[in-house]
Amino acid sequence: MGLAGSWFATWCWAVASRRLPLALAAQLIVAETVFGLAYGFMFEGRLPSPTEAIGATMQVAGVCSAIAVFSKPRAPSSLSQKSVAQV
């Protein structure tokens, strides 16, 4: 089970890193940290302390804000408009 799970996670990471912009793919590392914390708290059978919960919440908020920035359509820059006009 561990070998299959590790192989599948590595495959998912490779697919995501090819399809996502670099700055957005880096957010996956933060998600890995938050899930690791969650599994650790479940293993220990306890809830996170307030500082641990705030830290994990701030990490998730950072990932959400990065996703929001990357999901907005970008307006063409003036430089690309000039180069298209010259062609």
Rank of each mutant, 00 (worst) to 15 (best):
S65A: 06
L47A: 12
A4S: 08
A4F: 08
E44I: 12
S17H: 11
A68K: 11
S65Q: 08
F35N: 06
F41R: 01
L79N: 09
G2T: 10
S71W: 13
Q27P: 05
E32I: 11
R74S: 15
G55I: 05
I54L: 00
T10V: 12
T51V: 14
S77C: 07
S83L: 14
T33W: 01
R46H: 12
S65D: 04
F70I: 02
V87R: 02
I67R: 05
A56S: 12
K72Q: 15
A68L: 14
Q81R: 09
S80V: 15
G55N: 05
P76H: 09
S80G: 05
F35I: 10
V34Q: 01
G2R: 10
L24Q: 05
G36P: 10
T57I: 09
G2Q: 10
E32F: 12
T10W: 11
A9F: 14
V15K: 05
V60G: 03
A61Y: 01
A9L: 13
L28F: 02
A16I: 13
S77T: 11
L20W: 08
S77K: 03
V87S: 01
P50S: 07
E52R: 06
L28T: 00
S80L: 14
P48D: 03
V15N: 07
Q27I: 02
V60N: 00
G40E: 08
R74T: 15
V69W: 09
V30L: 07
R19P: 06
E32Y: 09
R19I: 08
L20E: 06
S65R: 10
Q27E: 09
S83G: 04
S78N: 15
K72V: 15
M1V: 14
L47H: 12
V60T: 01
C12A: 12
A66C: 03
E52V: 06
I54T: 00
A85H: 02
A85Y: 04
A75S: 10
I54N: 01
F43V: 14
L24T: 09
A9D: 11
I67V: 15
M42S: 08
W11R: 15
Q81V: 03
P73H: 13
S78V: 14
R19K: 11
F41E: 02
V87I: 10
G5R: 15
Q81T: 03
L22E: 11
K72S: 11
G62N: 00
R46A: 09
T51F: 07
F35L: 13
G40D: 12
A26Y: 02
L20I: 13
W13L: 02
G62D: 00
M42V: 13
V69F: 12
